[in-house]
Computed example of a mutant assay.
Amino acid sequence: MTVHKPTSGSVVLSWLPVAAMAVVAAADVVAGPGVGFLPLVSLGPAFSGLVGGWRRTALIGAVALLVCVGLGLYDGLFEERRGFTAMASVAGVTAAGIAAAVMRLRREAELASVRSIAEVAQRVLLRPVPRTAGPLQAAVSYTSAVAEARIGGDLYEVVASPHGIRAIVGDVQGKGLAAVETAAVVLGAFREAAHDEPDLVRLGERLERSVARELEGEKFVTAVLAEFGSEYEAVFLNYGHPAPLVVRESGSVDFPQPQSFALPLGLGAHGSEGPRPYRVVFAPGDQLLLYTDGVTEARDPGGSFYPLGDRAGLLKEPDADRALEALREDLVRHAAGPLHDDAAMLLLRYHDHAG
């Protein structure tokens, strides 16, 4: 179980109602009866209703009433209506604070429920990739652009099919539930077609038809498909997606590009020719990183893009998960704050089991 320690900011807010009442009481005592600070005691339950629970707000309100009575007696205000008016003000603000606290806690509970459902949906949609598939070892990383977010439009999958090991990494245009629904369509179609279609091009055409049926207007999905067969090579289909990163056993780095660029999935109806497969040597000891543009388009405070090729040395770590985590942490440090776009990375390593 994870224990969340209160932050310094939350501690300050929790003590703010008490501090407000203490300041008002001290100012009233110092200034004397003629100034009229007494109604400001209601600041205590007012602040408590904004940051605390309803029980704490009721307690702060009770304390505020006691302070109000004490100061009213000290100032001699109960000889006239001012003391009773101040008490009515404190009681009214306390009641309003309790109501505000109850409504806020209900909204927070509803938000927590929605986030929990979204997290479950994310696990179903982006299920863990197999750690090993044939001679390949896989690791995946997903960094949301918003710290609280649990779900987004980036997608990835690895399938060990009768026709070879097949992988996809994609990025759905847009955000929110619409992007999630589209990602679910793409992943569902890929998981099924990866087993059924013997040819990678036909697999891509099937994805195109599935996406075209679901999307409207100019919406699209960029994606790169990869296939690994019995030969020491990888075959790619690129639908307007960033080029894969290949890190050789020697440490050299390459971003293999297609001979011609194709439109993203969902825009095939515009009459353009689909992507052509291209082959890249992928031998034991080599690494392949498929990623979304949230990685390469992450900027530092000076506006410079993340230099992925220069950071490939971070993938030397023997453990694939730790290597990818080191790259992710370096990406976050480069951005020096929350990313402006989701960033998904799929690392595939070729291990020669015979060696």
Rank of each mutant, 00 (worst) to 15 (best):
Val93Ser: 02
Val120Pro: 01
Ala86Met: 05
Ala88Lys: 10
Arg107Asn: 11
Thr94Ala: 08
Thr85Gly: 11
Thr85Ser: 15
Glu119Lys: 11
Thr94Arg: 07
Arg107Leu: 12
Arg115Ile: 01
Met87Leu: 15
Thr85Glu: 15
Ile117Cys: 00
Val114Arg: 14
Thr94Pro: 00
Glu110Asp: 12
Val120Gly: 08
Glu110Val: 06
Met87His: 06
Arg115Asn: 00
Val93Asn: 01
Arg115Trp: 00
Val120Ala: 12
Ala95Ser: 06
Leu105Ser: 14
Ala100His: 06
Ser113Ala: 13
Val90Leu: 03
Glu108Pro: 03
Leu111Lys: 04
Glu119Arg: 13
Gly92Glu: 08
Met87Asn: 06
Val102Leu: 15
Arg104Tyr: 09
Ala109Arg: 14
Ala101Cys: 02
Val102Gln: 12
Glu119Ile: 00
Glu119Phe: 09
Ala88Cys: 12
Ala95Phe: 11
Met87Lys: 06
Ser89Val: 15
Val93Tyr: 01
Ala88Asp: 07
Arg106Asp: 05
Ile98Lys: 09
Val114Ser: 09
Ser116Asp: 12
Ala86Cys: 13
Ala96Tyr: 08
Val114Leu: 14
Ile117Arg: 11
Ala95Arg: 03
Arg104Trp: 11
Ala91Lys: 08
Val120Leu: 13
Val90Ser: 00
Val120Trp: 03
Ser89Glu: 14
Ile117Gln: 08
Gly97Cys: 04
Ala118Glu: 11
Glu110Asn: 12
Ser113Tyr: 04
Glu110Ser: 10
Ala109Gly: 10
Thr85Val: 15
Thr94Asn: 03
Ala86His: 10
Ala112Ser: 07
Ser113Gly: 05
Glu110Ala: 09
Val93Pro: 06
Ala112Tyr: 00
Ala112Asn: 06
Glu119Thr: 04
Ala91Leu: 13
Arg107Gly: 02
Ala88Gln: 08
Glu108Met: 10
Leu111Thr: 03
Leu105His: 15
Glu108Lys: 11
Gly97Trp: 07
Arg115Val: 03
Arg104Pro: 01
Ser113Thr: 06
Ile117Gly: 05
Ala100Val: 02
Arg107Val: 12
Arg104Val: 09
Ala100Gly: 02
Ile98Trp: 01
